[in-house]
Design a protein around this nucleic acid. Structure first.
Lengths: 134, 134
DNA sequence: TCCATATCTGCGCCTCTGTTCAGATATCCA
DNA sequence: TGGATATCTGAACAGAGGCGCAGATATGGA
C-alpha cells in the first residue's frame, strides 16, 4: 500500500503517491537557490531590518542617523543591520564625507517588500526608479 | 547643523533631515503589523519550510510522508514545521483517516513565495485556485 | 481487542542571531 | 594638528530557533 524507496543508502522514505513526489522533486530548485532565497526572506524576517528597508522604500535614500531616527534603533544596531543587508546586495551605499547614504539596491527585494507591506494594509507606491536625489 | 530631538525622555536622537524622518515615521506601519510581516518573512526564511511550501505550491496538496519524501526532511521535522505554518495560517490541513493532507492556505504568502521563486530563475505558474483535488 | 501505521508532541542539545558596549576608523573644521 | 562628529567594527552575552530522539495519540484492519 505504501511504496518504499531507499533515498540514499540507509534512510528509507515512505510515500503514498511516488509519482507526484517525483514530479515535485523534479521541480524543486537546487539547494543553493533555496538557500539564497531563504537568506533573502530571513533578512526580511526581522522587525528592525524590516523598518530599515521600509524607511528606504519610502524615502529613497537616508543616512545612518536618519535611519536610526526613523526606525527607533540605535546607530550601532543600524550599522550592524546595514552591513548584513549590504553583504547580501540588498542595500547600496553612497559615501559623502562623513555621511553614508543608503538606498535599496535590489529590485526583487523591493517587490517582495512592497508586496509584503500591501498585506498589512499599507499600500505604498512603488519607486521603480531611484529618486529624490539631493 | 544637526538637529536634536528627545524621542522619549532619556534618549536623544540625531537627525540630518528631520522633515524627511518625520515623513518616514508617519508612513511606518504600526509595530504589530511590522511584527506580523516579519513573522511571515521569517517563516519563509528557512530552507526546510521553503521546500515544504514550494512542494505545496507545485503539488497543491500533499500528505506528511510525501512532503517528507519531497523535501528530504524526516517526518518529525516536517510535522514540527507544519505546526508552525499552521499556527500562522499559512497552511491548512485536511484529515482523511490516519493521513493529513496539507495545502497552502494564504494567498498572500503564495504570492510572496512565487515572487521569491521567480528570483531564483524558477518561474512556476501561479495556482490561484485550489486544484488537483483528488 | 491487539497490532501496525501516520502523525503529532515534549524535551534537550546545539547553533545561530540580535543587541549592546566599548573602542576603532575616517572625515570635517578651526 | 587636534578635537568633534559619523560611521563602522569586534567581542560577549542572552535569547530564539531548528533539529532529532523518544514517546504519545489516533486511526484502520485483522
Amino acid at each position: 500500500m505504501v511504496a518504499r524507496i531507499g533515498s540514499l543508502d540507509t534512510c528509507e522514505v515512505r510515500m503514498v503517491d511516488p509519482e507526484r513526489v517525483e514530479a515535485v522533486r523534479a521541480s524543486m530548485p537546487p539547494d543553493g537557490d533555496i538557500a539564497d532565497l531563504a537568506d533573502i526572506f530571513g533578512l526580511l524576517g526581522d522587525p528592525g531590518r524590516l523598518r530599515l528597508l521600509t524607511s528606504l522604500l519610502e524615502a529613497g535614500e537616508l543616512c545612518v542617523c536618519d535611519l536610526a531616527a526613523s526606525t527607533g534603533l540605535n546607530e550601532s544596531s543600524v550599522s550592524h543591520a546595514l552591513r548584513l543587508l549590504r553583504a547580501h546586495r540588498v542595500v547600496q551605499v553612497r559615501r559623502a564625507g562623513r555621511m553614508s547614504y543608503y538606498r535599496l539596491a535590489d529590485s526583487h527585494v523591493r517587490l517582495l517588500l512592497d508586496l509584503g507591506l500591501q498585506h498589512t494594509g499599507h499600500t505604498i507606491a512603488l519607486h521603480v526608479e531611484d529618486h529624490r536625489e539631493q
